[in-house]
Design a binder for these strands. Sequence first.
DNA 1: CTAAAACCGACTGATATAGTCGGTTTTTAT
DNA 2: ATAAAAACCGACTATATCAGTCGGTTTTAG
Lengths: 147, 147
Amino acid sequence: MLKISTKSQYGLRAMVCLAKSKDKICSLRSISEKEDIPFDYLEKIISRLEKANLVKAKKGIQGGYFLAQKSTEIKVGKIIRVLEGKMSLVKCIGEKEKHLCPREKRCVTKNFWEKIQDTLNTALDSLTLDDLILPKNILETRYKTKK
Amino acid sequence: MLKISTKSQYGLRAMVCLAKSKDKICSLRSISEKEDIPFDYLEKIISRLEKANLVKAKKGIQGGYFLAQKSTEIKVGKIIRVLEGKMSLVKCIGEKEKHLCPREKRCVTKNFWEKIQDTLNTALDSLTLDDLILPKNILETRYKTKK
DNA sequence: CTAAAACCGACTGATATAGTCGGTTTTTAT
DNA sequence: ATAAAAACCGACTATATCAGTCGGTTTTAG
């Protein structure tokens, strides 16, 4: 059905939430409540984001998470790719030098899928977290021009 | 992991196979062999394509399938959407007037996902079956200009 | 009449998703 | 010092979808 996982959707919302809080540290509990994300699940999600160096944590009481980089420097595509795992629409592309499919040479569709994949990645990378917290009309024009 | 199902991949290859055969009727057996697609599975796939009026069948010996329209008139996106089922990347978009998510109004990411969805659909619709059977370099330029 | 084809519905095994749960460690406020 | 609030971690589960198989029926050309 070609769905973006809730993991990515939740993760992106959590990141936007952090971006909106600027430098103020946010506990998972507060994000979970503000964004209606199951707390336990959010823990798993944020842990992947942390390992990918997109957020940093402060432990202990009054602790929480904050962005590891400026919101203008975090492309949405980065977030999605981290959470979605290796994101190749079809298994025969992506792994650069590995020829996974014996039909590769004579396959007319491989080339097509590569184009689609590329288009998708470009679209996801065309906006940063910062763009998402701007008013809607600004988003529109940025998306158009950056592409 | 955001994968296009093998159903769509197989289905597209089968359609390309039919496009290449022009008006010559093709049995599933022959397509299955040429394209290395499990025969039984291919039956299910072609059945969906037939119900969607993308191919027509002739029963009995010497029977088979052929395109229901000209290959220049069948957009790849149509094929993929038929096989992939309703293709909305996130569940809260797509159903036009149904407001599925209580957070809809204040959700900053909904708008973003709609853009991505739109970009993807446009990309898939930018080429027809006929484009896919042309030499690679022609494909490149068509894809670029049509987008 | 028979073989080759389309057609159909039920079944299955594997994998991924979307969580949940129980517990440990770290830190700060009192 | 200690209790509470937070991050951190690994194991577990239920559900759904995918990818494919199987057994059988119907149609039609030769």
